[in-house]
Amino acid sequence: MDLFLQFLANGLVVGVFYALSALGLTLIFGLMRVVNFAHGEFYMLGGVVGWFVTTYLGLDFFSGLVLVALVMGSFGWAVDRFLIERVRGQGEEPGILLTIGLSIFLVNITLLAVGPAPLKVARAITEGPIFLGPVTITKMRLLAMVIGVALIFAAHAIIHRTRLGSAMRATFQDPMAASLAGIRTKQVYAATFALGCTLSALSGMLLASIYSAQASVGGLVSLKSFVVVILGGMGSFPGAIAGGLLLGVAEALWGGYVATGMVDIIGFLLVILILVLRPQGLFSIRAERA
């Protein structure tokens, strides 16, 4: 029973991380209907840039986090203005191909720049275990969960409580009407993409400080994020959280009780099952907009 609780706790922690890393993907899809295959690379760049600013610029973790948000926000903005904007309104396929190309480019250019080795990102706090009854969890993981939840709330607040957020929602409901009402829709699209990119990058840096940053991690992150987002329903924040927790727990239990070798298969099997039985995702009645 204690073992089960530990598996469950591990699964929940990993699940929150999964949810966190899928937020950027679900935001960009939910609002912009762009399936971002470069999502994992945005995440990866967050970690690598975080490594760079904490190692070479000597910043501490939190100032590094802020700088990463700025850098990756601008990057996302530029990607939207220079790439995504050109295929807007042409359906999903060009966007998918464009971001696949972008992801191949980003991985390999990063490999050229920093090599394939794992990179250490400065930690926010000194590491140490915390005991909660029979369950052990590390401080850093707990902190990451707290920051993750804060990020989720912050993103939600931006979308629902700010002028930019209402401009976003207006633009994605009816771009024509929004631009007639004086909203500069191009800026709004770019801002949304930048927000999604920032979210991905922040989660990348956060998790890189627990594990490590690595140029080639993006593919796996993209895949897992797709799994999470499909499980929860594309475009839904609560769905992403539920999907992340489900995936985390399912993997932890499978790994603990069945077989460690094929843990990664669980997510794909779940996705295949879900899409056959309930294409709109497990937790949303209709794919709710973020």
Partner: peptide, 18 residues
């Protein structure tokens, strides 16, 4: 030049789409 080649492929994909 494995990485250079794949970087180039990435750019090619984007250029073709655009």
């Amino acid at each position: 030049l494995q990485e250079l080649r794949l970087s180039l492929f990435g750019l090619i994909v984007m250029a073709i789409v655009l």
